[in-house]
Design a protein around this nucleic acid. Sequence first.
DNA 1: CAGCTATTGATATGTTATAACATTCTGTTT
DNA 2: AAACAGAATGTTATAACATATCAATAGCTG
Lengths: 160, 160
Amino acid sequence: MPHTIGFQCADHSRCKTTSLAQAEAHCASRGLRLTPVRRRTLEILLAEHRALGAYDVLAHLADAGMGSQPPVAYRALDFLVKAGLAHKIEALNAYTACMHPGHDHTPAFLICRGCQTVAETDTTLANGRLGAAARGAGFVIEHTVVEATGLCPACTEERA
Amino acid sequence: MPHTIGFQCADHSRCKTTSLAQAEAHCASRGLRLTPVRRRTLEILLAEHRALGAYDVLAHLADAGMGSQPPVAYRALDFLVKAGLAHKIEALNAYTACMHPGHDHTPAFLICRGCQTVAETDTTLANGRLGAAARGAGFVIEHTVVEATGLCPACTEERA
DNA sequence: CAGCTATTGATATGTTATAACATTCTGTTT
DNA sequence: AAACAGAATGTTATAACATATCAATAGCTG
């Protein structure tokens, strides 16, 4: 597994390579097609531990000569999200690469408002109070969004 | 306190009245001005246990002759959110009235994709795994978004 | 009532997302 | 190899969500 907390990513080029290789394997084993646009989109997301807006992604795709209209980016992002290779950060209306694809997980995010870094971790929400409330109410949870915004260690220090 | 789970709201007119009275008291005690537009916006949100988009709210405000341009709705919603009288549902880009204003809380939501009902409950996220991950990484959480989508009891049954 | 601040009104624009339909690509059957 | 079916992409247009900016007004304070 790559690192769990993006704020502590020491060797990002290794992190990118690993994630991309995992994505390849993940798609191959499921008969999903990681086409050039999709692969490039994932690379764009993997470039940094940040969330990118669809239009940021689109601009990068356009730079690479791979389509310049919104649906191109949205379709690629939708594919990656459905395939579990990326996540949408609802609080930012933006997208980020998954840091451990394949591991069936309930992702949770720490979002730094100082440097926009996004770190992915896990939660066991269904076992906590929300899960209990849901079961108590007879509510069937299908998807969860867990995001915390604040300041990462570096940004906290900078403002001290 | 009104009810905690919207799916189980039996007497909604009472629920509305109570929440509005709480809001009045809340603002009075803090020197916040619950102006006509703001009060009406809250009433609009309280009308149902659903999240409304800003433009839905705006349409209702316009019906009431209270402004028809987007900033009117967004300003009123921002006020309510900052005052703790409403919440933004990030997964829907929509807004819902707070069900227990004044109780300093970390809200969490159950969102039914069948009937769009939104139920507010609480989490103790900071004590759970995400909180632990944040502390471990030296991340200072300022705000959290916890939202679960799925099916409420009524909608689950309907599809059975 | 003069001056300050908060609020509202109004115009314009920026940002995020999708509907709809045409075209091309990929693999499969014949 | 030709015909076909389905997936993916290209393209146009538009819908939905949100904010910057400046002008006008209301409410409070000295």
